[in-house]
């Protein structure tokens, strides 16, 4: 493909991304050094937004919670997603129904799913799961105000919402594993486990890496599900970074727009660090091809 052709093919898309992603991003970086309101020119205040954010214990809590959530959810999604995909792959006639019902959780708009999820647990609104769990364990858990029960609920919701995507991807990946390997993995017992660990999973390294990547990205930006699931998120240490930005830069007006922007920039850095292994692989591959 010639250079000029390449440019003409890629141009429109690149133009949209530069215009609508890069330019706003530059604005965010500018704002992060300013004291500023929407629709007004800001005044340069150096790094004070950054020092304010980094010195704010609330921000620290948000970072901690977000990373914790990301780590737990990603691990759960990979393990459960793989097991479910193996199971679904072995199904016959049932497969479309099982897969279809599971996908519902993924296609529900996040915030809608979170509202439904919160109703399952909210005793004041006649939740049923809290009641079942109370009967089973004999303990009345405070799903919305106690840090860990609330975390468990948020984790359960996030896994519930993102699991179908990973199942779908891994299932698709399994179709690419040579048939003999899959047949061999069906033998029961310890051999099967070894087969999965040492043969099948390495074959699907690419797809599993991809699922991992997408899950990390999606969990790092958890935001809307917390509105119904954690109404006092900050007070119990379950606020996400994006929620912190929302609260400072949008909800209570724009006084804190500079601070919010600084947090945005910081979270971009954080995300890049989390994604670094993937970026390194990509660059390596490019170098190999070049």
């Amino acid at each position: 493909m010639r250079r000029r052709e390449f440019a003409s093919f890629i141009g429109p898309s690149l133009l949209v991304m530069v215009g609508l992603l890069v330019l706003p991003l530059i604005r965010t970086v500018q704002w992060s050094f300013q004291e500023v309101n929407y629709g007004q020119a800001g005044t340069f205040i150096g790094l004070s937004n950054y020092t304010q954010a980094l010195g704010d214990p609330r921000f620290g809590r948000a970072v901690f919670f977000t990373l914790l959530l990301t780590a737990i959810v990603t691990a759960l999604i990979l393990v459960v997603g793989y097991l479910v995909a193996i199971g679904v792959n072995g199904l016959g006639k049932l497969r479309p129904y099982i897969l279809g019902s599971m996908l519902v959780a993924y296609v529900l708009p996040g915030v809608v799913g979170a509202v439904s999820f919160s109703w399952l647990f909210n005793s004041n609104f006649g939740g049923v799961l809290n009641l079942v769990i109370e009967r089973l364990t004999g303990q009345e858990l405070l799903w919305f105000t106690d840090t860990w029960p609330n975390r468990v609920m948020i984790i359960a919701h996030t896994v519930w919402h993102l699991l179908p995507f990973s199942v779908l991807m891994i299932l698709a990946g399994l179709q690419g594993v040579p048939k003999e390997l899959r047949e061999a993995a069906r033998i029961d017992g310890a051999n099967a486990l070894k087969m999965h660990l040492w043969v099948i999973i390495p074959t699907m390294r690419g797809i599993i890496g991809f699922v991992c990547l997408i899950t990390i990205m999606d969990v790092l930006r958890t935001f809307d599900s917390l509105i119904p699931l954690s109404p006092q998120a900050d007070a119990i240490g379950n606020e996400s970074i994006m929620f912190y930005v929302f609260d400072n830069a949008f909800r209570d007006g724009s006084q804190q727009l500079g601070l919010g922007s600084a947090v945005n920039v910081l979270s971009i850095l954080l995300i890049l660090i989390c994604l670094f292994p993937f970026i390194r692989d990509l660059l390596k591959e490019a170098k190999a091809k070049a």
Binding site: S261, S267, K289
Partner: peptide, 28 residues
């Protein structure tokens, strides 16, 4: 179809864009 660094960099950029915190672009 266009091999080499340019494509790799552009794909990498796409990856970074996909991962951006939404507010960083939506508030501007």
């Amino acid at each position: 179809r266009f091999p080499g660094y340019v494509s790799a960099i552009l794909l990498l950029l796409a990856l970074v864009f996909r991962s951006l915190p939404r507010f960083a672009v939506v508030l501007p």
